[in-house]
């Protein structure tokens, strides 16, 4: 235990008897929070941007780079808001993306490969984890959701492409297929058939009118960064809203049925716990 830890315990006025309870509670809340963050991050991403993440032949220059950051930053922002407001813990974004990545890999192995025989090369996921680390780090440095949204969310959007290109670039090498040039990613998608996902169903770049000197990927990354700012604020707000600790008053009958007798029944109705203020 560090000096700082002892100082925190001292301020919190816990007795030596209560400290083990407190540590037990820490562990339990970590477990509940981890399951929650994992679940909500995955279901949210899955049905808002999942298709681009499932398949290597959906990872295009226009939508993949735009959509993955904006569909993952939302839960990163909400969980960041919750953990920061309640406990000043700057781990919400990182936990959201880390557990999402973990869950994704589990499913890629057990289901895509294990159930339907698809090779992992078809279903490698991307990740915004590096952006999430930046988001949390900037929150620590700035102590401000306003500043974090302005700089962290921008970096979150911008970093996705380069951080993933490091290991995805090889899939975009040119290769010949039936006499036509295509990419390795396309070839993988073509080779391992998906009856429910015909080629035309891919929502991908169907041709750029102006490629801005072969930099359409960066154009998408910048647009993604722009959208990330707004979504970060909106979903930080949702996180704050979710921390509403209100109890609605109930009628006498409800109180009696639930074992509240006598004058005590009138006590504490609607007494919400004090809500900590938002940062900055």
């Amino acid at each position: 235990m560090t000096e700082n830890d002892r100082a925190i315990l001292k301020v919190s006025e816990l007795s030596s008897r209560a400290i083990p309870w407190s540590r037990t509670l820490d562990v339990l809340i970590i477990v509940v929070a981890a399951f929650l963050v994992w679940s909500v991050s995955h279901i949210s991403f899955l049905l808002l941007g999942g298709d681009w993440d499932f398949f290597i032949d959906w990872k295009d220059r226009q939508y993949w780079i735009l959509i993955i950051p904006i569909t993952t930053i939302i839960m990163a922002a909400s969980f960041q808001a919750i953990f920061w407001n309640l406990f000043r813990l700057p781990v919400g974004a990182t936990a959201s993306l880390l557990l999402l990545l973990l869950g994704t890999w589990i499913v890629r192995y057990h289901s895509w490969q294990g159930l339907a025989y698809f090779p992992l090369s078809l279903v490698v996921p991307g990740t915004c984890l590096m952006g999430a680390l930046v988001l949390d780090a900037i929150l620590v440095l700035s102590r401000s959701w306003l500043v974090t949204g302005m700089f962290g969310a921008v970096l979150y959007g911008l970093l996705f492409y380069p951080a993933n290109w490091i290991y995805m670039a090889g899939y975009f090498q040119p290769v010949m297929n039936m006499g036509d040039m295509t990419s390795v990613a396309d070839l993988i998608g073509y080779t391992f058939p998906r009856a429910g996902t015909p080629e035309y169903i891919r929502i991908i770049e169907r041709g750029t009118l102006r490629t801005f000197g072969d930099t359409p990927t960066w154009v998408s990354a910048f647009f993604s960064a722009f959208v990330c700012i707004f979504l970060y604020y909106m979903f930080w707000g949702l996180g704050v809203l979710a921390c509403n600790a209100r109890f609605f008053p109930v009628g006498e009958r409800f109180k009696l049925i639930y074992g509240n007798k006598g004058k005590a029944a009138g006590k504490a109705v609607g007494a919400a716990a004090a809500q900590p203020g938002a940062a900055s």
């Binding site: 509670l25 809340i29 509940v32 929070a33 929650l36 679940s39 909500v40 279901i43 949210s44 991403f45 899955l46 049905l47 808002l48 839960m75 909400s78 969980f79 919750i82 407001n85 309640l86 949702l238 996180g239 979710a242 921390c243 509403n244 600790a245 209100r246 109890f247 919400a272 716990a273 004090a274 809500q275 900590p276």
Partner: peptide, 21 residues
């Protein structure tokens, strides 16, 4: 599905009620 999934965030408010007490 994701929108209803987001309601899980309400655990934040529940944490306040539970941990506060």
């Amino acid at each position: 599905f994701p929108i209803l999934g987001w309601t899980g965030l309400a655990l934040g408010g529940l944490f306040i009620q539970v941990i506060g007490r």
